[in-house]
Design a protein around this nucleic acid. Sequence first.
DNA 1: CCGGATCCTTGTCGATACTG
DNA 2: CAGTATCGACAAGGATCCGG
Lengths: 123, 123
Amino acid sequence: MKKNNKKIDWRSICPISSSLDVLGDKWSLLIIRDLIIHESRTYSQFLESPEQIATNILASRLNLLSHLKLIERVNLKSASRNNAYQLTKGGEALKPIIKSLGKWAGEHLSEFNPNMLKINETL
Amino acid sequence: MKKNNKKIDWRSICPISSSLDVLGDKWSLLIIRDLIIHESRTYSQFLESPEQIATNILASRLNLLSHLKLIERVNLKSASRNNAYQLTKGGEALKPIIKSLGKWAGEHLSEFNPNMLKINETL
DNA sequence: CCGGATCCTTGTCGATACTG
DNA sequence: CAGTATCGACAAGGATCCGG
């Protein structure tokens, strides 16, 4: 049987905790970020991002985010193979939050990661 | 030798990625959340939160967040033992982001975690 | 080739016991 | 009370394999 571990164990009834139960890892929000920047991405395009996610991690995150209806598969006429992902309404709603995170990092993390770009240069 | 691994390996120069290199786990932002709600917390008060963080994880996160200057130790006259933590300016700056996350979860995650509370205005 | 699935190694998490 | 040590479980990460 497929590893269909869609069951999330919610640690509490706190909404902040619940958001972290879902997005509290190093990769999920990065996938959302790519979809904010590029509108749509294929599997191999995700792999081209500089952070170099592993194929199995990417697949599991795409499954989870699809299940949560934050992203969805789309058929692109432009692509030869019709399999790309893009944000749903729910995923789009994360856009200002992720931009704020980037802005915050530029203001408070430059000391520790000096090479980091400012947010305007990336988004 | 002590595990003094304060070195963070930044995956890229992207500020969003950098913020996740630091806060992209299930516990760091929950510690910040507690300090937003309560102003200051002691070690054992953190342990009382409903999500039940393990003691070693709590200690390592408190160290990391202190090193990043997002939280700081304070001496409380009110407490018999003078060891509590509170947010710095940098940590305070996360407040609107965390509130937005809670609001987002209430709007887009209730379907999956039905018992979840709605975020209240006072938080 | 592209989109994954599978195997395997390594590292981190997390529960609990223990210490100053 | 504020952490540290230990150890098993499990997830991450790398490499490779496979179906279309």
